[in-house]
Design a protein around this nucleic acid. Structure first.
Length: 573
RNA sequence: GCUCUUGUAGUUCAAUGGAUAGAACUACUCCGUCCUAAGGAGAAAAUGUAGGUUCGAUUCCUGCCAAGAGCACCA
């Protein structure tokens, strides 16, 4: 990467001058200041007891002496900034690199060869996949792709909750309705997962209500829960549970596929309890201690808060189950880095669990990275839900899709409108999540995301489509993308090569929004350039060929960038 | 109460301690165009508050104010 290369060279010069600080090269906000800039002279001036302006001039002189053919000019500015301008030849080489690599452009080897495990989208089976999961999936999928882009071998898993009192309640409802017979009816006797979910979705809520209202129901539900926990495979209830579980998993796969994400494996909550419990018991009293009849981790003694791992009844709590999950992750997949994504609210909770885990196996804590995302809040309660005000993922997607469809009928595109509307709807939603820095709450304004204007996924898709249309038109006129030997560089060309750096930064900081932000800047630069320059000009074929090459490079970067965000690129819209 | 997170244009978001705090939406002025106007150009608008560290602070530290979250057998 040109940035790293130049940085190393300048670092060498600075070290010779006795500067001990690390040189940081950045892109000045103002493009006219140059392609790269460093403020090393400003920060080092005091150490060396020198005037910062003079020091900047000294360093600039040494950089000029390097005679690097990529550097057009080295200037100093203000109190001691050093600005570098790249030569047109250097930019040409960078552009040619994009054109040559195409879909592989933007890859790096930051995690080359490493085994990385990612867990996200963990659903509560029997509860609908809701708006929160949509957010979790979007971030998890983007991080997976970004990490894969660094050369890692990734394995993606999900951790479905398949056992709880709540699930026993849902099974009770299904049993009341007629058990297996009802399931067959609800699925219309075939594999209609969607219909099953819309029929069975309310069961969870109904079960909770019935449970709260009747002691008899409570007794029956507990009996069911026992059968589930004890894996009473021959019981009617367990069979119903198993059928429902399989259908729910099918549904989960169905929804996540619609979102363009897939999973290599699952670890179920029902697997983690016994393992977690055993781990806790094996580590008394060095990690866990008895307190008030329960087994706890004394977080307060470590500056955190205390949590119960095994309750008075001797059952593992969520804490112990998460410990079991960690254990399974490392024993099954042996990752060098394990990433998982949850709601931001679980941050303090996992800090405690992580600390406890670290006292059992250091690597469990050291190799685990917890990414969190904020809650999604709504502006305007446009999307209703039968489930206590929390819209399901499908309700959200379908609402956006409908609006997208209306837009397309205006345009009348000659292709499958339905699939197409889905693609754009998902882009709008995902982008509105991913343009925000991680960990912050997302204020989702359906109107804004649906407007498809400004900072949006569809805006970038549209820009990409524009590049495709130009290239097609060029081909039709017999003009092929070809960089000119000499040309006047534009801001657009100077932005394209930065994508490599951005993709790396996103991986290093676990921050997909850097990519989203860069794509917006690039799309804007391209659209300005497009408005100011006629790309296909029959009277100047050489210039047209060059501009087509720049267009092609832009399209490549936009496409690769959207891919890393988990967003599809249409060829026409 | 204790702990943590967050306060940036009217709104939604950016900004590894650097140059004139960058976009988008909205309101305002233009471009009906010829390669896709889901576009482009222009003008207006912001760092919660009081200190501190620094050549330089939206960024680091402290107090205050405001919002959100977590804090014992739920998940």
């Amino acid at each position: 990467m040109i940035k790293e290369d130049l940085q190393t060279k300048i670092q060498g010069i600075c070290t010779e001058l006795g500067i001990t600080r690390g040189v940081v090269l950045e892109h000045p906000q103002e493009l006219s200041h140059g392609d790269f800039a460093t403020s090393i002279a400003l920060s080092a001036a005091k150490d060396l007891r020198q005037n910062s302006k003079e020091l900047a001039e000294t360093i600039a002189g040494k950089i000029r002496e390097l005679g690097d053919s990529r550097i057009a000019s080295v200037t100093t500015a203000g109190p001691g900034f050093i600005n570098l301008h790249l030569t047109q030849e250097a930019l040409s080489i960078l552009l040619a690199d994009i054109l040559e690599k195409e879909e592989t452009y933007g890859k790096n080897n930051f995690h080359s060869g490493k085994k990385i495990l990612v867990e996200h989208s963990s659903p509560n089976l029997f509860k609908p996949f809701h708006i929160g999961h949509l957010m979790n999936n979007t971030i998890g999928e983007a991080m997976t792709r970004i990490v894969k882009n660094t050369g890692a071998h990734t394995t993606v898993i999900s951790y479905p909750s398949d056992i709880s009192l709540g699930i026993a309640k849902a099974i009770w409802v299904v049993t009341q309705k007629g058990g297996e017979d009802w399931i067959v009816k609800a699925t219309k006797g075939i594999d209609d997962i969607q219909n099953f979910i819309s029929e069975a979705g309310p069961a969870y809520v109904e079960g909770t209500k019935a449970y709260d209202e009747s002691e008899q129901v409570q007794k029956e539900v507990r009996a069911i829960a026992n059968k589930l926990y004890n894996k009473d495979l021959d019981s009617q209830e367990y069979k119903i549970f198993d059928t429902c579980k399989q259908l729910n998993i099918r549904y989960f796969n169905f929804v996540t596929q619609r979102l363009r994400s897939s999973f290599d494996s699952f670890i179920f909550e029902s697997e983690t309890g016994p393992i977690g419990k055993q781990l806790v018991e094996e580590n008394i009293p060095n990690v866990f201690i008895q307190s008030e009849g329960a087994i706890i981790f004394d977080g307060e003694a470590r500056g955190l808060h205390t949590r119960v791992f095994i309750n008075k009844d001797g059952n593992p709590t969520y804490e112990a189950k998460d410990l079991g999950l960690l254990s399974l992750k490392f024993s099954r997949f042996n990752p060098e880095l394990s990433i998982f994504v949850t709601d931001h609210e679980q941050g303090p909770y996992f800090k405690v669990v992580g600390t406890a885990a670290g006292e059992i196996h250091k690597e469990w804590q050291e190799k685990t990275v917890h990414l969190t995302h904020g809650r999604m809040t709504f502006k305007g309660a446009k999307m209703s839900s039968r489930l206590g005000g929390v819209p399901t993922a499908e309700e959200v997607l379908n609402t956006i899709k409908e609006v997208a469809k209306e837009k397309f009928t205006e345009r009348s595109i000659g292709m499958d409108t339905d699939a197409f509307a889905d693609m754009v709807a998902i882009a709008a939603l995902k982008f509105s999540i991913l343009k925000v820095a991680p960990g912050k709450p997302v204020n989702f304004d359906p109107e804004e995301a649906l407007s498809f204007e400004g900072d949006s996924g569809p805006y970038i898709q549209y820009t990409y489509v524009r590049t495709r249309a130009l290239l097609e038109k060029g081909e039709a006129s017999g003009m092929h993308p070809q960089l000119a030997k000499e040309y006047i560089t534009t801001d657009l060309e100077r932005m394209l090569y930065r994508f490599e750096e951005v993709a790396l930064q996103a991986a290093q900081e676990y921050a997909p929004h850097h990519i989203a932000h860069h794509l917006l800047l690039l799309a804007q630069a391209f659209n300005s350039w497009y408005a100011a320059n006629k790309v296909i000009d029959e009277s100047n074929k050489e210039l047209s060929a060059h501009r087509l090459a720049v267009t092609k490079a832009t399209g490549t970067v936009l496409k690769n960038g959207l891919y890393l965000l988990g967003i599809q690129t249409p060829e026409r819209m």
